[in-house]
Design a protein around this nucleic acid. Structure first.
Length: 426
RNA sequence: GUGGGCGUAGCUCAGCUGGCAGAGCGCCGGACUGUGGCUCCGGUGGUCGGGGGUUCAAAUCCCCUCGCUCACCCCA
C-alpha cells in the first residue's frame, strides 16, 4: 500500500465478483423467462425519484420514509431520493405515461437496485436488488392468485422446496380505524406488560405490535381479534377466494393473522415468503394488493397487486442443485503450443465459439504442464491442445480433464465433438 | 438508533507474561524440453486497519479513530 489511502466502497454496498455474478445472471434469466411467460413485460424506471413520491406512497409514518431513505438535494435544490422500493415508481410511471389508456390489465416486472439507509446485517444491505412483478388493472382474487402462482413458479424453477408462503387479509382502508381501536382496546389494560417499543407503537402504529418478536408481546397480541374478523365482508371473501385458488394449484401457504407489512399502501391480500435458512423476520419476498395507490398519487382508480423478491437474499439461499448447474457449466481450455500454433489458435478458437463452444484461450504462453494445471484448477471440462503436430494434420487433441482421456479430432469437427460430450443436459 | 464480537499475507488464522512478523491454503515457477489433479523444492506476497502515547524496544500495553461483523429494530 502506498501513501494514498485505499478507497473503500460505501458501507452497505458490495462488489459482486465472478463467479457469483453468474448466479445473479441465471436468477434474472429465470425471472425474465417465467414472468415473461405470464405475460409480463419489463419496465425500467429511474433509480431516483422526487422524495414526495415515496412519502406519499410508502407512508409518512413508516420506518422506510422515516429514517431509511437516501435523500439529497440536487443543484437546483429539489429533494430527490434513491428509490427504497419499486412499486411506487411503477405507479408513478403508470400515471405519467397514461398506461391506463392501454388495454387492461398490464403485467410489469422490474429488476434493479434499491436503497435503504440501514445498519448492515446478514442479508441486509443499503444497496440491494429486487425482482418485482406487478399486475395492474384487475381487482379480483384471480389476479392475486395468478401473481402468487407466477412467484411460486419462479421459486420452483430455482429449485426451492422449503420456502413458506404466509398470507393475510389486511382488510379495506375503511376497516383500518375500527381494527386499530380493537387492538388498543385489547392491549391497553396490559400496557405495562408490553415491551418499551410496543408501548410506543400502541400509540403511534398499533398494527406493528402484532409482529413484535418479544415473547410476552406475542402472547398478549394473540388475544387481539384477527384483522380478518373485523375486516369488510368483501375483503374476507376476496382473500378467501385467493386461498381457494392457491389450494387448487397445490401451492402450500399458511394464513398468518399477525402478518403486517411495512408499507402503508397495502390492503386486502398481503403475503410474505420466508426461508428457514434465514433469521426469523428476514423475508425473501413480500407483496400485496394496493388498489388505492395510484389514485392516492393523483392518478385514475386502478387496482394492482404485486410483490418484490430480495435478490441478494435469494442468491444467498439458492438451492445447491441450481447453484451447481450454473457454476459447473462446462468450458473448454484452448492451449496453443509453439509459434505456429499461437499464430493460428485465435482463428480456430473463434470458429469454435461460433459453433457454440464456450472456451477460454491460453494467452500467457505457459508450458503445457502449467496450462493443464490451470485448466484443471479452474474447473474446465476439457482442454484443446493445438500443437505443431496436430496443426500439420489439421487436427486438435481434445483432453477430457475429468477422465484423463484424450483423442484427436479434425479441427472443423471440434464443436460437434464438444456438444456430444459436454452439451447441455450431459 | 441500541447492544455485543472482531481487525496480522489474496484466504483461514497463530503470534498477546513487550525482543529480527510466522504457518497452512492460494497464486507463479521448477523437478517432469508436448500432458493436470499426488509428492518434493523454490518464488510471490504484510509500514500487523490508521493516528497518537508509554518504552532502549510495541502486532503485543494505554488512548483516540476508522472499518468489518452479529443481534435488536425494520424490511427485500
Amino acid at each position: 500500500m502506498g501513501k494514498a489511502p485505499v478507497i473503500q466502497r460505501p458501507r452497505g454496498t458490495r462488489d459482486l465478483l465472478p463467479p457469483e455474478t453468474r448466479l445473479w445472471q441465471a436468477v434474472e434469466e429465470v425471472a425474465r423467462e417465467v414472468f415473461g411467460a405470464f405475460g409480463a413485460e419489463e419496465i425500467r424506471t429511474p433509480i431516483f425519484e422526487p422524495t414526495e413520491l415515496f412519502v406519499r406512497s410508502v407512508g409518512e409514518t413508516t420506518d422506510i420514509v422515516h429514517k431509511e431513505m437516501y435523500t439529497f438535494a440536487d443543484r437546483k435544490g429539489r429533494s430527490l431520493t434513491l428509490r427504497p422500493e419499486g412499486t411506487a415508481s411503477v405507479a408513478r410511471a403508470w400515471i405519467e405515461n397514461g398506461l391506463a389508456d392501454r388495454s387492461q390489465p398490464l403485467r410489469l416486472y422490474y429488476i434493479g437496485p434499491m436503497f435503504r439507509y440501514e445498519r448492515m446485517q446478514r442479508g441486509r444491505f443499503r444497496q440491494f436488488a429486487q425482482i418485482g412483478l406487478e399486475l395492474l388493472g384487475a381487482d379480483g382474487p384471480l389476479a392475486d392468485a395468478e401473481v402468487l402462482a407466477a412467484l411460486y413458479e419462479f421459486l420452483g424453477r430455482l429449485g426451492f422446496k422449503d420456502l413458506e408462503v404466509h398470507l393475510n387479509n389486511l382488510g379495506d382502508p375503511e376497516d383500518r380505524p375500527r381494527y386499530l381501536s380493537a387492538i388498543r382496546d385489547t392491549l391497553a389494560p396490559h400496557r405495562q406488560e408490553l415491551c418499551g417499543d410496543c408501548q410506543r407503537r400502541l400509540a403511534e402504529n398499533p398494527l406493528r405490535v402484532l409482529d413484535c418478536k418479544v415473547p410476552r408481546c406475542g402472547e398478549l397480541a394473540a388475544a387481539v381479534p384477527s384483522m380478518d374478523s373485523v375486516a369488510s365482508q368483501a375483503s374476507r371473501r376476496h382473500v378467501g377466494e385467493v386461498e381457494e385458488q392457491l389450494a387448487r394449484l397445490a401451492i402450500p401457504f399458511r394464513r398468518n393473522p399477525r402478518l403486517v407489512r411495512g408499507l402503508d399502501y397495502y390492503l386486502r391480500t398481503v403475503f410474505e415468503v420466508v426461508s428457514p435458512q434465514l433469521g426469523t423476520g428476514t423475508v425473501v419476498c413480500g407483496g400485496g394488493r394496493y388498489d388505492r395507490l395510484i389514485a392516492d398519487l393523483g392518478g385514475p382508480a386502478v387496482p394492482g397487486i404485486g410483490f418484490a423478491v430480495g435478490e441478494d437474499r435469494l442468491v444467498e439461499i439458492l438451492p445447491e442443485g441450481f447453484r451447481t448447474s450454473v457454476l459447473a457449466r462446462p468450458r473448454l481450455y484452448v492451449i496453443p503450443l509453439g509459434e505456429t500454433a499461437v499464430r493460428h489458435a485465435l482463428p480456430h478458437a473463434r470458429a469454435w465459439v461460433r459453433g457454440g463452444v464456450s472456451l477460454e484461450l491460453e494467452v500467457t504462453g505457459r508450458s503445457l504442464r502449467a496450462a493443464l494445471k490451470r485448466a484443471a484448477g479452474e474447473g474446465f471440462a476439457a482442454a484443446a491442445i493445438l500443437g505443431e503436430e496436430e496443426l500439420a494434420a489439421g487436427e486438435v487433441t481434445v483432453r477430457d480433464l475429468a477422465r484423463g482421456e484424450q483423442q484427436r479430432v479434425a479441427l472443423a469437427a471440434l464443436p460437434e465433438v464438444w456438444h456430444r460430450h459436454w452439451g447441455r443436459g450431459k
